[in-house]
Design a binder for these strands. Structure first.
Length: 312
DNA sequence: ACATCTGCCTGAGCGC
DNA sequence: TGCGCTCAGGCAGATG
């Protein structure tokens, strides 16, 4: 599942390969991939055709291209936004191969040197989507996300919080938000309006690293453990990004390739029954809030023990 | 305002 | 072998 590090890897790939290209044609191969648009595929194609992909930007797991009238133009008029959902991928080809079975949309792009490129949006499980929409001012006045200096973001992303790797994240406010409410802390971590970019895998990893039980009520976190948790989320995603960025080949932008998953060193996710690398106790797995959740019952206590004592 | 539930989907992996 | 079942997951929008 593409979470922040995977989406950032895709953003960088697209930045390298398609920034500055012009959209010459769009072929929507599955209508529902543009489901946010009332006019459907026809309106989508009409709005983006002829525009140039200027900057590639990401906030959390949301990705967009600023669309400018001409190459080199700094003033975008629209955003072409994308969410990869669970299985979305972008692939860039120097030619126009037979579309993959899961290809939902195909863009024909013209590079500045007039050569043609093919950009495919693939999505096996179809939870991802493409959208064309206006850019609106960011609520805090800072840059929209990684990849742009402009304080603009797509309207549908305006409610999404800054992510754990964003230098513009207000860490004090985020820490406070992580300690609010009765929900289990894992659910709060997955809430993209608080801190964005964290999905099921990195939520488990961050909780493991910070030694916090996934079901601890948010309000029961100390300020110190909330800070530790936020820092843990940043650290695991930074580490994954450093790995995800390496397996990159020029004309193939891989989102959720198996290699990315296997090369990643996960401590908790998917390791039920295996020993915790800190304490050796077997890791547990349970469905919490409909999400498979992995944790170490010894290192990650449901409540912070006030002091050492029997039974806690 | 906050929390929970439902719908959107496909394909892998399972038991029978 | 093949059928039907469950599961996996993020997000928006509705409902409590």
């Amino acid at each position: 599942m593409p979470e922040l590090p995977e989406v950032e890897t895709v953003r960088r790939g697209l930045e390298t390969l398609v920034a500055g290209t012009r959209i010459d044609a769009v072929e929507i191969r599955r209508d529902s991939c543009v489901r946010l648009l009332s006019g459907g595929p026809a309106e989508f194609s009409a709005q983006v055709t002829g525009l140039t992909l200027s900057r590639l930007v990401r906030r959390g797991k949301f990705l967009w291209a600023e669309l400018a009238p001409t190459a080199g133009d700094d003033a975008p008029v629209l955003a072409l936004s994308a969410h990869l959902g669970m299985s979305g991928q972008f692939r860039v080809h120097a030619d126009a191969p037979e579309p993959h079975r899961h290809c939902r949309a195909r863009f024909t792009l013209a590079a500045p040197d007039a050569s043609a490129l093919t950009l495919d949006f693939l999505d096996q499980r179809t939870f991802g989507y493409l959208h064309v929409e206006p850019l609106v001012p960011t609520p805090d006045g800072g840059p929209g996300g990684r990849g742009t200096p402009l304080p603009l973001l797509p309207a549908s992303v305006a409610h999404i919080g800054r992510d754990a790797l964003d230098p513009g994240l207000d860490r004090t406010a985020a820490t406070r938000a992580l300690r609010r409410g009765t929900r289990g802390i894992k659910q709060v971590l997955l809430d993209q309006t608080v801190v964005s970019g964290i999905g099921n895998i990195y939520a488990d990893e961050a909780l493991w690293l910070a030694r916090v039980h996934p079901e601890r009520p948010a309000h029961a976190l100390t300020a110190s453990s909330a800070r530790t948790l936020l820092e843990a989320a940043r650290e695991v995603m930074e580490r994954a990004l450093a790995q995800g960025g390496t397996s990159f080949d020029a004309l193939y932008v891989d989102v959720n390739g198996e290699s990315g998953y296997f090369s990643r060193s996960l401590e908790a996710y998917g390791r039920a029954g295996e020993p915790c690398s800190r304490c050796g106790s077997p890791l547990r797995r349970e469905s919490i809030g409909g999400r498979s959740t992995h944790w170490c019952a010894r290192c990650q206590r449901r409540w912070t023990a006030r002091r050492a004592g029997p039974g806690s």
